[in-house]
Design a protein around this nucleic acid. Structure first.
Lengths: 231, 231
DNA sequence: GTGAAACTGCATCTATCGTACACTGTGTCG
DNA sequence: CGACACAGTGTACGATAGATGCAGTTTCAC
């Protein structure tokens, strides 16, 4: 509604006013401070108060630059995500391109884990986010997929990246998911035989942290087998 | 730490006290009211105030039953997720079982979309959630995957379900993601050629809402091709 | 120049949130 | 029957996002 229009204006950059005092702040500096805060202490610690304090200003001053907190977070998010890689140069066709795409995207999410939370649900799409999508769909051009199928592959890939990074982040920031598992499992080992066996085996082979690549290969294999099946 | 222990106690049910006045509330009634609220108006509208009001009680009364809001939400979440389906009865081996697992899970998420938000990041694992994981890993027993690989497949599948439901929910609750896309794309059509072509084609074939099944088949295909490759 | 318009940033205020604490009333066991 | 344990309430506090009104500052039009 009104919020969406306001957000749309945000991407263009607010029209620089002619009269009046010089603005002491710049939009990108505000967003940058917010990003720094979110990186260091998580998205929940990003409050208008703290962002303003980091800039040496009261919180209400921020509302001269940003319609509200939602818009600030949207701006932070799109800046943090950044531009997608240019895949067209990559040799080898769709598969290495999508692989690279997923890898780069996971790197971005790892660098700014809070973007996983801010790119969910009701929100405004940023231009960079759209560029990423465009890039992944373009990598699927000319291999015999329908338009809808291309979007579906892109959605599946992006979902994989998101959720696997999320699990990975949770793992490192919580001293091991396994710790929380075992606390719950203890004393009821007979209820989770398959899970416990799999975890024991995984631990023995130190195969953790490979989940991302493994799942990615599975998805790309699945796309490949669809293509073969049609050829 | 302390929070985790308190949460663990929650799953057991608080020990019923002997003396004193009768409790007017029950833990499951509180959680049920919270679930109803979250279903109807989203997780953000679940406040201690509103849950208490729905039960005809002041908000502070809830703290007699629940250590804090986090624990209430954790409880709501595990109840809303519910027990996993029993896949062992299903004929046909791992593939139809995992397919059914993913379908059932997506149904749960659709019924309570807010659980997508509450099963993210730092949080306590509920017993039902663990049961779902156990069930998916068990479906992969005996087909030649290592323990770590089973966990990886389960993670990939669960990630797919989560993110595709999330996208689907966003779509229906926002009058079409496409609406937000086009607002941003308009006037810059040349920047998103692949995306626009794919969307136009998808629209023409009405192939939307198939993304979930399509991606699911791709992932299962990918697992299948790994198994073939090893046989 | 000079005045007025436009703009900035701040102080103050409201509403809402989770939750800590003291208190009153009630039910049960010794 | 009386002491104790517990239930629910009222009040209070610190944080939050944001609305509003008010200074002070800058620049354009004349």
């Amino acid at each position: 509604m009104g919020t969406e229009e306001a957000t749309a204006l945000l991407w263009e950059g607010l029209a620089a006013p002619k009269r009046g005092p010089r603005p002491t702040l710049r939009l990108d500096a505000i967003a940058g401070e917010g990003i720094a805060l979110a990186d260091a202490e998580g998205i929940d610690s990003v409050t208008m108060q703290r962002v303003a304090a980091a800039l040496g200003v009261t919180k209400m001053a921020l509302y001269r630059y940003v319609p509200g907190k939602n818009e600030l977070v949207a701006l932070m998010t799109d800046i943090a995500i950044g531009e997608p890689p240019r895949l067209a140069d990559l040799e080898g066709g769709w598969r290495p391109r999508l692989y690279a795409w997923a890898l780069r995207m996971s790197e971005r999410f790892w660098r700014h884990p809070w973007t996983l939370q801010t790119t969910v649900g009701r929100r405004a799409f940023g231009p960079n986010e759209l560029d990423w999508l465009e890039e992944s769909v373009a990598a699927l051009d000319g291999i015999g997929l329908e338009g809808g199928e291309k979007l579906d592959v892109a959605a599946t890939l992006s979902g994989h990246v998101r959720s696997l990074v999320q699990q990975g982040v949770a793992r490192v920031s919580e001293d091991g998911i396994e710790g929380r598992f075992t606390a719950l499992v203890r004393g009821r080992e007979e209820r989770f035989p398959a899970l416990l066996a799999a975890m024991k085996s995984a631990e023995a082979h130190d195969s953790q942290n490979k989940a991302f690549e493994f799942g990615l290969e599975r998805i790309l294999d699945g796309v490949g087998s669809l293509l073969e099946q049609r050829a």
